[in-house]
Design a binder for these strands. Structure first.
Lengths: 75, 75
DNA sequence: ATGTGACTTACAGTCCGTG
DNA sequence: CCACGGACTGTAAGTCACA
């Protein structure tokens, strides 16, 4: 229940979850978010400390709010 | 209606609002968040594209959720 | 269709000082 | 205390070839 503090891991998991829920491949999501396909992969694997502008791009591409991607459990 | 997409501006405004509500100076907040004092100023003025790790630091220092800092009026 | 190392360029983030 | 300029260091951004 304690978060790793690794909000990046959590973020990546959420991206992957919402992406698959929409039946999108990393490639397709990358296209919708105007980002590179390998970059999406890196985000999902929490290898990059993403910036707010790109967080928004992905949230929009996934049609979810930023809160849905970042929020853990309203800690 | 269109958002400016300027989430950075919105974020900066929220940081300033919650900071002042707690009666903290930029310096004091910087200290609590383990960030530099000039950096907090830059964020409030939307001059920097902050990363997720620092978003979390600031949210914790302000004792608010990330949603409260990022969420617009996403409909 | 995804993971990974290597790579270059742009900028996040720190520190000094001024008014 | 805060806004702002300049210089600097570290790392995110963005891409590719190949597994």
């Amino acid at each position: 229940m304690e978060k790793n503090s690794n909000i990046l891991v959590h973020f990546g998991i959420q991206v992957k979850f919402y992406r698959q829920q929409k039946g999108l491949s990393q490639e397709a999501l990358a296209h919708r978010a105007s980002l590179h396909r390998t970059y999406i992969g890196m985000i999902e694997r929490a290898e990059k400390n993403i910036t707010l502008l790109n967080i928004e791009k992905i949230a929009n591409a996934l049609e979810v709010s930023i809160s849905q991607l970042c929020d853990n459990s309203d800690g």
